[in-house]
């Protein structure tokens, strides 16, 4: 039996935010097995009440992120062979978010911060107006494209040490969305959004440690987007607009 055929020794966090512990499971190894396959196997065969989130299984919905051997990952697109250490897997709920039960976290704080950062679209036109033409090679569109593939999985939020230290910090995902919208010619929130991202816990709290960029499953660079917001807010402050 080679190392890759050996059954997996899996520790999964069971319990709530107040009380819980790791439970051990032995899971058969399969070809092209993902971490989501592992937790699904445990739920279907050993623990019907194991709680975790998933929906699309193809890396689009952003709901299945968990900590795997200490690193935040999208579990549906992470092969066991990429994350396993020996034959051991330690699977925990996402860091920096309150646990509901087992591997499911409250996402409320995460999305409330999107609202706080004005990370929603404020249209300039009505349905009766013509669609604004956007050239794919325009500088603003290129900047917006850097962050547009975010799937809201909260991997960056779990990876960020500033989020851990400062509960008020908006976090990489909300700020990246705000940066994308600041470069959207169809959006009019402008200064209102810059005010929203430049208060206490805003973009200036980022230490540029780049854990978000390191772990983002979509290979985005939220640190770069946040640096863009820092520049934009600084220019607005110099002009006296903030």
């Amino acid at each position: 039996m080679s190392a890759s055929d050996k059954p997996l020794s899996v520790s999964i966090w069971r319990g709530t935010a107040r009380a819980g512990e790791f439970s051990q499971y032995t899971v058969p190894r399969k070809k092209s097995q993902t971490i989501l396959d592992v937790v699904s196997w445990v739920q279907r065969n050993l623990e019907p009440d194991l709680s975790f989130r998933f929906a699309c299984r193809v890396g689009m919905c952003g709901s299945c992120a968990m900590m795997v051997n200490g690193k935040p990952r999208w579990t549906c697109r992470t092969h066991v062979e990429k994350a396993v250490q020996g034959n051991k897997l330690v699977i925990e709920p996402l860091r920096n978010l309150p646990v509901i039960k087992d591997l499911a976290c409250h996402m409320e704080d995460f999305f409330d911060k999107w609202t706080r950062a004005e990370a929603r679209f404020h249209p300039t036109k009505t349905r009766n107006d013509d669609i604004e033409p956007v050239r794919p090679d325009s500088p603003a569109r290129i900047l917006a494209s850097q962050g547009i593939e975010c799937i809201n999985c909260a991997v960056c939020y779990a990876a960020c040490d500033v989020v851990e230290k400062d509960k008020n910090y908006l976090g990489p995902a909300a700020l990246t969305r705000a940066w994308t919208l600041m470069n959207d010619v169809k959006d009019r929130a402008g200064i209102k959004r810059l005010r929203a991202v430049s208060g206490p816990g805003g973009c200036h709290s980022c230490h540029s440690q780049q854990s978000c960029a390191e772990y983002c499953p979509k290979d985005l660079n939220p640190t770069l987007s946040i640096a863009g917001l820092k520049r934009m807010t600084a220019k607005a402050a110099i002009k006296g607009e903030l």
């Binding site: 206490p200 805003g202 820092k230 600084a234 402050a237």
Partner: peptide, 11 residues
């Protein structure tokens, strides 16, 4: 305020 302090820190 945070933006001004950030600018002051960088300058």
């Amino acid at each position: 305020m945070e933006t001004r302090l950030y600018l002051l820190q960088r300058i």
